[in-house]
Amino acid sequence: MVEPTGVLRDPANLVSTRAPYLWRLGALTRSLVLGAGAGLAELLWDVDVPLWLWAGYAAAALGYVTVMPQFRYRVHRWETTGTAVYTQSGWLTRERRIAPMSRVQTVDFEQSAVARAFGLASVTVTTASAAGPLRIDDLDVAVAQQLVDELTRRAEAEHGDAT
């Protein structure tokens, strides 16, 4: 029998403090687009969406836009050690991923146009498994670049084809 050793702690590092603003902007855009789509449909096809439904949607969207980024900011965390990468993501459903440094295959640096405006970038670490990419969203650009360099160097130091 395997002895229970305790549960995992959260990864040590938070993402950039500016990340919630980016997420909030995204949430706001999504909410507005959906609302505008419904409004347009109301005009075009003469559907009568009752006022209470609009009010309900507005309340839900407002809640999503205000609460979600804060919530996510506390959940989205990451950590690297000499031997492993550890990430945590999600907000209602939480997912933690751990990959040993010796199995890291690629380290990707990504930056969308909007993220660039915020000075943010994402890092994705892949292994040989299709099920295991570790994604760290919206770090400070400097932190992300440093992380990519560091991970690439460490992964190179390991041998074998990582399968």
């Binding site: 995992l8 209602l92 459903t93 939480r94 997912e95 933690r96 991923r97 751990i98 990959a99 040993p100 199995r103 292994t127 040989a128 498994s129 099920a131 295991g132 570790l134 990582a162 399968t163």
Partner: peptide, 8 residues
């Protein structure tokens, strides 16, 4: 080559 722990 890695572990994922998922919780709804």
């Amino acid at each position: 080559i890695g572990w994922n722990l998922r919780q709804t």
